[in-house]
């Protein structure tokens, strides 16, 4: 009976060639963390628990940065009554990394209710991190009540439209996209026409060998549309990135690590620093998952990314806060 039930889940929901068994394989990283090295579009991953078997060269590169996500400052429910404490633990983890990362990306849901004091607390905690620069994109929790005005004032200087922007670091082109605005009833995340046009123009002048890192809050691939874990018009965005040999997409929103390779694109979602969410379809809703207090930090985490010049490779390392 159980076996039969399990089989029923193994169909391809999204018609993208990834069945539930594939998802669960990806999910095995959650909590333990993983080192991922992408070479020529192929992603190799190593469990952090076996990291001693991985050569340091694979983890070091000319550029390294950290992704943090879903801090949800202000959340105080049983799933984690101390989100400030776990964010501080994330910063400690970042400060302990060998080879200081150059900067941090925060992929949204900085705050829980878009309150000024929530943003202030996160800013204060992140000041103690070794990397001084933080690049943000908003999550839906950061643009409540004011269509993102406060977010733009705080973090969006020099950005376009609702806050999208790009920058270059050591030959890698970074693109921050916004997919949490103007959401339509029944729909998923949305980039929108204006942003897509900007994106097409932004990458037009780049050579095909330029490594691209796209970061946005809601996954730009169909993780689980039933829970809104996807973006309506992400295919259009990815079409503009087809010419590049190496594209890495970093997202948050789903509070768990998950990876997928599709052609030249490696998709990666980061753990939350605040609370875990269930695996796709494994609960009645995507609400906060309550785990025993002593296990909480093992399901929260940070992501460390290294770029190794000449190999067109990005090594993505997930670390839990445990």
């Amino acid at each position: 009976m159980f076996e039969k039930k399990k089989d029923e889940l193994l169909h391809d929901h999204n018609h993208d060639g990834v069945d539930r068994r594939g998802f669960l394989k990806c999910m095995a990283w959650a909590g333990t963390g993983a080192l991922c090295v992408m070479k020529g579009g192929v992603l190799n991953s190593y469990s952090l628990s076996r990291i001693s078997e991985t050569s340091t060269a694979d983890m070091m590169g000319e550029l390294s940065f950290v992704q943090i996500s879903d801090s949800h400052m202000g959340f105080n429910k049983p799933a984690n009554p101390d989100v400030a404490g776990t964010l501080k633990a994330a910063v400690d983890k970042i400060n302990a990394l060998s080879g200081a990362p150059e900067f941090m990306l925060h992929t949204g849901d900085i705050s829980h209710l878009s309150k000024p004091e929530e943003f202030d607390t996160v800013d204060q905690i992140l000041k103690s991190a070794t990397p001084k620069d933080v690049f943000y994109v908003p999550g839906e929790h950061d643009v409540l009540n004011d269509d993102g005005k406060q977010f733009l004032e705080r973090y969006g200087k020099g950005s376009k439209g609702a806050g999208w922007y790009s920058f270059d670091k050591k030959g890698v082109h970074f693109i921050g996209l916004i997919n949490v605005m103007n959401l339509k009833a029944g729909g998923l995340g949305t980039l929108g026409h204006d942003q897509l046009e900007w994106l097409e123009d932004d990458v037009r002048h780049l050579t095909h060998s330029t490594p691209i890192v796209v970061f946005a809050h809601i996954p730009l691939w169909s993780v689980y549309p039933e829970w809104g874990w996807g973006t309506e018009d992400s295919n259009q965005a990815l079409a503009y990135l087809k010419k590049f040999g190496s594209v890495t997409v970093l997202n948050g929103h789903i509070h768990q690590t998950m990876q997928k390779v599709e052609g030249n694109v490696t998709f990666h979602t980061a753990a939350s620093t605040a609370f875990p969410q269930p695996q796709p379809g494994k609960a009645d809703s995507p609400g906060p998952m309550k785990v025993p207090a002593e296990q909480l930090r093992s399901v929260l985490g940070i992501t460390d990314v290294n770029y190794i010049r000449g190999q067109h490779a990005l090594a993505v390392v997930d670390s839990s806060l445990a």
Partner: peptide, 12 residues
């Protein structure tokens, strides 16, 4: 009167 949650638009 159809309505939805503007934060989680799958909720209608």
């Amino acid at each position: 009167y159809p309505y939805f949650c503007s934060i989680h638009p799958k909720m209608t």
